[in-house]
């Protein structure tokens, strides 16, 4: 996993590099927008951590430029701006995630892991949580080393929850992940899928946060 860190504050960049290396990420650092664009043009990074307050080109412009070149590289924004508009703007332009300074390093690595899992570029395409193993390449789920059969939508729900382990997915989030726009969805579709998955998985593997959503604990 090779990360490009775009951050103009040197002590922060150095600290982050050390932290991320502790977590076995490879990190290259550039300190302005121009260098970032140049580096991304030819180097082969898996994702970008982008500070918005850059000295030359504004971080949002860098983001726009990258997305203009049709690059789908995951980008996490780091910023000291935390207004709702700033967040919405960043996500609209095409950021994958948004982290407000000062953040917990564990929060950042958790989000990097989510992206890593989604990309399937981790050491393997296999994610293991407790005694449940999901192979995102082979589309297989193993419980206690036994393959279990899941319907397509059930597999999608489980994959979403496992990829985002430790975070709550609301019913709306799951729904929008499963169904295309305009597709008819019965009001309890997600509940039905979850209940079907639960029958095939260890007890309490999927937790319900009543009124909020579902989660799989790390």
């Amino acid at each position: 996993m090779r990360i490009l860190l775009v951050e103009d504050d040197l002590p922060l960049a150095q600290g982050l590099q050390i932290s991320l290396r502790h977590q076995d990420f490879a990190v290259d650092h550039v300190s302005n927008g121009k260098d970032a664009l140049n580096t991304l043009a030819f180097a082969d990074h898996d994702m970008v951590i982008l500070d918005l307050g850059l000295p030359d080109i504004d971080g949002l412009s860098v983001l726009k430029e990258v997305r203009k070149n049709k690059s789908a590289i995951p980008i996490i924004i780091l910023t000291a701006r935390d207004s709702v508009e700033d967040k919405v703007q960043g996500l609209d332009i095409g950021a994958d995630d948004y982290l407000v300074k000062p953040f917990d390093i564990s929060e950042l690595t958790a989000r990097l892991r989510v992206i890593e899992r989604r990309l399937g570029t981790a050491n393997s395409s296999i994610i293991t949580i407790h005694n449940v193993v999901i192979d995102t390449l082979a589309h297989k789920v193993l419980v206690n080393e036994q393959v279990i059969n899941l319907a397509k939508k059930e597999y999608m729900v489980l994959k979403l929850l496992i990829e985002n382990a430790g975070r709550i997915q609301s019913r709306e989030q799951i729904e929008s992940h499963l169904y295309e726009w305009g597709e008819e969805v019965s009001s309890n579709a997600v509940e039905v899928h979850i209940s079907n998955i639960r029958k095939k998985l260890p007890e309490r593997f999927i937790k319900t946060i009543r009124g909020v959503g579902y989660t799989v604990e790390n």
Binding site: D9, P11, L12, G15, L16, I18, S19, H22, G53, A80, R81, D82, V100, K101, P102, F103, D104, I105
Partner: peptide, 20 residues
């Protein structure tokens, strides 16, 4: 906010690294 948040991030991350 920016001026305070960035040095605080530096403090946090470096303390975290030291702890590691």
């Amino acid at each position: 906010a920016h001026e305070l948040r960035t040095p605080l991030s530096v403090l946090k991350i470096n303390a975290h690294n030291l702890q590691y």
